[in-house]
Write a protein that binds this DNA or RNA. Structure first.
Lengths: 242, 242
DNA sequence: CGAAACGTTGAATGGTTTCAACAAGAGTGG
DNA sequence: CCACTCTTGTTGAAACCATTCAACGTTTCG
């Protein structure tokens, strides 16, 4: 098997894809665009009738409160859809920040619907991925509402790990992670100072190290036990739909 | 105009509905079911290939953590869809609790798709409502992550107010609310004790009273200013799509 | 009437934030 | 190439918001 795009890899985990379906996937990819780290992708206008599929780089979507603090709602990594709903529904009310340099393929709504019509299994796969994204936002909400800082942080990093494994960018030993402690803080609803302390604790307990753009998991099993991470959607080694 | 169902009322706020479209809506309603307060609607099996439209009563969906605490993700009120995604996507991993006695009409996936195909404006309206639901979950996440207890609580009660106004069950003076302080606590990520204190503060500041199943808003404008509530989707006095 | 659920309040505890100060590394322009 | 600044990371101490524990009042309902 030759190198698949992260997107194809991810969908392949949900639905076993035939060569024909893989070919149909290619039709989705439109114009390639790149965005610079830090410079917000203003949703108004820029992405209006089109969505993107992330080819490389990390992105986050967030909201800013009148007080000036912000809350990151979710991160997108290679293989993820960006703005899928905004194509179908309405202009979103949140901001998008590229965390690294980002390469993304534009996806036109018309192409998407066209491919969906001709290869229903692809539609299933895409919607499945979308529903997983939504489940993650819910999981995120639960974590912020009911888990303490350490559990929440570890959970988040473990979830990132499972997502990255889907596209071949992580193993249970760790992964490259371009996030700053400020990003973590804004996502976890904590202060950056406290994130720092929590990371130190995780490191001193020899569970996990978050340093210099690298997450190293020292004891995967013990970490999972310690924070009661639910492995159900982790133990997916084959497509769900054949 | 004769009495519309809450569902029709809500959609009417998004899309101006013709008589023909209102008639098409009626086709959606299938078997009527009722559920008892407190008895969880187990998602596995019960609601599998069908969704529901709430006719009367309140429902909440929540997740339970290994520690035993729970986090309520969202509430559904009359006019809301229940399990829309589970029809399209996969079986959800959360529980559903009817808070009051609930009357709901079953909606078959086939009927839904059929109506969508024949009256695209209805499809737009339904998807619009779905996207608003999703936006609310995000708003909820932001609140839990970045607002203090008082702001969070007031925000939540104001949001409920705007939702209920859409279906004619609230005014800016208040509304009937069957939630207990425990429900509030589980939704807001707070302890019930602290919710009680926060409610007292809101009451003593003559902003809002939450008592005996009734939310009374004493000073709508001052409350909104105090907690920096965003009125944008509040000031909707006409359909967005004509 | 009694029990169970819900609401209320105080005091002690604790997790998290804020403030403040400093170290280390990356990028920038002179 | 070095000084400079800016961002990111690190640590301690004080302050604060929210939780927990515990007790008691109130309502609801069988």
């Amino acid at each position: 098997m030759i190198a698949l795009s992260p997107f194809a890899r991810k969908l392949g985990a949900f639905v076993a894809l035939s060569d024909a379906e893989l070919a149909a996937l290619d039709q989705l990819y439109g114009r390639r665009k790149s965005f610079l780290a830090g410079r917000d992708i203003v949703y108004q206008g820029q992405i209006k009738q089109s969505a993107y599929i992330l080819a490389s780089g990390w992105v986050c979507s967030y909201k800013i409160l009148p007080s000036g603090t912000r809350q990151i709602v979710e991160f997108q990594i290679p293989g993820d859809f960006l703005g899928l709903r905004s194509v179908l529904f309405r202009t979103p009310d949140h901001n998008i920040e590229p965390i690294t340099r980002v390469e993304a393929s534009e996806v036109l709504a018309s192409d998407l619907l066209d491919v969906f019509g001709r290869t229903p299994r692809l539609a299933t796969a895409v919607l499945w991925a979308a529903s997983r994204d939504e489940a993650m936002v819910v999981e995120h909400l639960v974590g912020i509402g009911r888990r303490d800082a350490l559990e929440r942080t570890a959970h988040f990093l473990l979830e990132l790990c499972t997502r990255l494994m889907l596209v071949g960018m992580a193993t249970t030993d760790g992964y490259a992670c371009p996030l700053s402690q400020y990003h973590l803080a804004d996502a976890l609803g904590l202060s950056a100072v406290h994130v720092n302390r929590v990371l130190r604790e995780l490191r001193e307990d020899a569970l996990l190290t978050f340093q210099k753009g690298q997450v190293t998991i020292h004891d995967f099993k013990r970490l999972i036990d310690r924070v009661e991470f639910d492995r159900t959607y982790l133990d997916q080694d084959g497509p769900l739909l054949r």
